[in-house]
Amino acid sequence: MNKKNKVAATTNWPVTILLILGCLTVIFPLYMALVIALKKPSEMTNDIAGALSLPKSWSLENFSEAMRVTDFWHSLGYSIMITVVTVVLAILIHSLAGYAIGRCMAKSKFYKFSYLYIVSGMFVPFAILMMPLVKQTAQMGIDNWFGVILCYLVFYMPMNIMLYTGYLKNIPIALEEAATIDGATTWSTYWKVIFPIMKPMHATVAVLTALGTWNDVMTPLVIMSGTGANTLPLAQLTFQTQFGTNYNLAFASYLLALIPILIFYLVCQKQIINGVVNGAVK
């Protein structure tokens, strides 16, 4: 037994090597996308080397062409605007609502009902809301980026309110009572005391909401496709036919769509991983 424990305490090389090899399944598609994006169509021979070898001359031409064809900067702008506004509003509105509902649902039937009503929205698939929402946003004149943001605020509400009310259970009510005795209103107590304490949950909500909205195709596809405006993923779908068989151009465009979120991941890897785990486990 002793011997076994000693062995276990050192590095398990077979597993380490297997895991490193396994990484190839993640890296290969991205590597392939990158080398194809850097090549000229003439370098793409029919064999496997034509697609996967490193390009003979590094050229960013495909990227600038892809930017032009897909109207990259506009799509990027819409993607950033929709994601940022959604995340900021989600943190402000969902945390407030989570606070009001979370603090009162033990005593009041109205808040208990509100909680169950909103959280049960988690079971509603987008497919059933999709067609009526297309009609409704058009009638309201918000079949554009603004309507998309409103939809997101509602789609993420069940999850976010559940996260916030759950987190709030661990924040002692005495903290607020102390502030109230000093004469502060509930409103100002919230922003001065509770909102800052919920910071870890804001990070989780921000990560989950941002990943979801940034990568979503379906909502902008059905709601804002008539406006001529695209988000980054939607632009890939819209211009797919224009890429034709020019895969070099297509891959340059795909990479352009992936780069912003990859950079974001490199910068905030820890927060993103924590956010995803917290969101699922809590």
Partner: peptide, 10 residues
């Protein structure tokens, strides 16, 4: 973190 659509294309 990657979008399903672009991953699908790749």
């Amino acid at each position: 973190i990657l979008g399903g659509l672009v991953v699908g294309y790749i």
